[in-house]
Amino acid sequence: MARKISLGRYVQGSSFIHKLDPRFKLVISLFMMVVSLLSRDSWQIALVTVVTAVFIRLAEVPLKDILKSIRPILFLLIFAFILNIFSGEGEPLVSFLGLDITLLGLMSGIKTLFRLSLLVMNTTLFLTLTTTPILIADAMERLLSPLNRLKFPVHEMAMMMSIALRFVPTLLDEAEKIMKAQSSRGADYDAGGPIRKARGLISILIPLFISAFRRADDLATAMEARCYHGGEGRTRFRVMKIRPDDIVFSIMVALIGALVFIGPTFIRVPF
């Protein structure tokens, strides 16, 4: 049965952001990470928040999916928040076990919360949600291609990633099949203590690994049969074309970034 397995959490769509060149998206998301981190004043953070909101609108992805991306770092966020609220100087608002929470501390805690969330939301938005994994791999290969001169195996890395992506559904199916086969032989993956459970896992993992090796061997032969000989002299079927949209959008992002970077020399606010 053809099951739909989504890798990452790519949301199908044809929005403005979806259509941007993945190379630009990769650079922009890195850039927005830096911008988010370097935002110190509350006006900068407010600006980045507004800009991110606009991006979300442009990407036409459900807000729910964006917010979900914060969940994995929730613990980190809370930890950073608590660390910050106790480390501010000035008049204590509340005292707690000998530790003071000051207004400045509270502000810096909230700002940290925003900075980290914005950072994650921007990468999720530009990469995970609107770019397929294979295009990200491709964009990386192209962006890193200058490293080829330093003998860094850029093409090989990208090929490995692409093959890994191709085989994820196949191996998932395989794992399910093996699990069913072992269950039919009386394996019970829910019962027993930790040792039995670990043994149960072995009965799935070993056949899965062996199958993966066999597939790898077959695939290598099939690739050789189709004249694969590394990245040298290879042309590409998946082309990336830079469109005016990419340029205009990147300039806008760069300007906003510049504003955040050099802003503090002109604008001073108390927070």
Binding site: I163, R166, R214, L219
Partner: peptide, 12 residues
């Protein structure tokens, strides 16, 4: 063309 249909497809 090899025996196992799955193990000769490279593209996504």
């Amino acid at each position: 063309v090899f025996q196992n249909p799955d193990n000769q497809i490279i593209g996504t």
